[in-house]
Simulated scan of single mutants.
Amino acid sequence: MPLDAATALAAGPRITEIVWTAKDVQLYHLGIGAGRPATAPGELRYTLESRLHVLPSFATVAGGGAPGVISALSMPGVDVDLAHVLHGGQRLEIHRPIPVEGRAESVSRITAVYDKGKAALLVMRTEVADGDGPLWTTEAQVFVRGEGGWGGDRGPSARPAPPLGEPDVVVERPIREDQALLYRLSGDPNPLHADPDFARRAGYERPVLHGLCTYGMTLKAVVDTLLGGEVNRVRAYDTRFTGVVYPGETLRIRMWRGDGAIRVAVSAADRGDAPVLADTTVELSCPVRL
């Protein structure tokens, strides 16, 4: 069996050193759509080295290593076809503001393997710390189609209640035709996002945008719209990927202010508001200013 849950769970952690520079941060920000308009003060905080702030979602690509999805597939006990893999969800917890340049130790391991019937769900947890202590923790949920059905634990099924009432803010963010090509330079070479033949083999009409690119674009919209650009107010960020986005489309991002958190829902405006991100929450270090 290509997926051996017992082996994956018993494997020791993968420990690597990661290094990033201001150029890596700038490239990531450009990859999620920063810099439009190029000279706007609010955009220069993402693109100009003398004013640079790090959007917390940079943690998902810091060091240029493989993201949680690709990394999980190279762990012991996991030998599956990349075309059968879907990124199911992502959680990020920020312990300290991410420095513009840094060197840190990354410790990753598979912490759970669930049997979803027609698919297996892997949970890949990564903890990153530098000489001053913990920086961030990420948790990627990875679906592998065709690898379920062995009678294992199905895992938790509870989901948060949807936000009530009309959203407080709705914004739209256009996606460049070459957005996926730019984003993949930050470390995710999955051909699903660039190769039309591979995309068709995976069941899509054409290459799709990285889920983590949508993830970053959404967080940037929240920070810019409701947090006044204060990236360090983000304490945690959690989402479930519910649909694909194609380069050239437009994201419609709905936001609800809450007590210590912002609830978010994202859809593809060009395809009848097809859901893209759901169960999405940005937890804050201090309340939203009304």
Score class of each variant (00 low, 15 high):
residue 9 L to T: 00
residue 22 A to D: 06
residue 25 V to F: 01
residue 26 Q to P: 12
residue 38 A to R: 14
residue 40 A to S: 11
residue 41 P to W: 07
residue 45 R to K: 13
residue 48 L to K: 13
residue 50 S to V: 06
residue 50 S to P: 00
residue 50 S to L: 08
residue 59 A to G: 05
residue 59 A to P: 00
residue 63 G to N: 05
residue 63 G to V: 04
residue 65 G to C: 11
residue 68 G to M: 06
residue 70 I to S: 08
residue 71 S to K: 15
residue 73 L to Y: 05
residue 74 S to M: 14
residue 74 S to P: 13
residue 76 P to T: 00
residue 91 R to H: 05
residue 92 L to C: 05
residue 92 L to E: 03
residue 100 V to D: 01
residue 103 R to A: 11
residue 107 V to I: 07
residue 109 R to G: 01
residue 122 L to M: 06
residue 123 V to K: 15
residue 124 M to G: 06
residue 125 R to W: 10
residue 129 A to I: 03
residue 131 G to Q: 11
residue 139 E to F: 04
residue 139 E to I: 01
residue 141 Q to H: 12
residue 141 Q to Y: 10
residue 143 F to I: 07
residue 145 R to V: 14
residue 145 R to P: 09
residue 151 G to K: 14
residue 158 A to R: 09
residue 158 A to T: 07
residue 166 E to A: 15
residue 166 E to K: 13
residue 168 D to W: 04
residue 170 V to T: 14
residue 173 R to M: 12
residue 173 R to C: 10
residue 175 I to G: 02
residue 179 Q to A: 09
residue 185 L to M: 06
residue 193 H to G: 00
residue 200 R to L: 12
residue 201 R to N: 13
residue 204 Y to P: 02
residue 205 E to R: 15
residue 208 V to F: 10
residue 209 L to D: 01
residue 210 H to I: 01
residue 211 G to M: 02
residue 217 M to W: 04
residue 223 V to Y: 03
residue 224 D to C: 05
residue 225 T to D: 10
residue 225 T to I: 04
residue 229 G to Q: 05
residue 231 V to P: 06
residue 231 V to G: 13
residue 233 R to F: 08
residue 238 D to W: 13
residue 247 P to V: 03
residue 248 G to S: 12
residue 249 E to I: 13
residue 253 I to V: 09
residue 257 R to Q: 15
residue 259 D to W: 14
residue 260 G to L: 10
residue 261 A to E: 15
residue 262 I to V: 11
residue 264 V to I: 08
residue 265 A to V: 14
residue 267 S to V: 06
residue 268 A to T: 10
residue 268 A to R: 05
residue 272 G to Y: 14
residue 274 A to G: 11
residue 277 L to G: 00
residue 278 A to T: 09
residue 279 D to S: 08
residue 279 D to L: 07
residue 282 V to E: 08
residue 286 C to F: 11
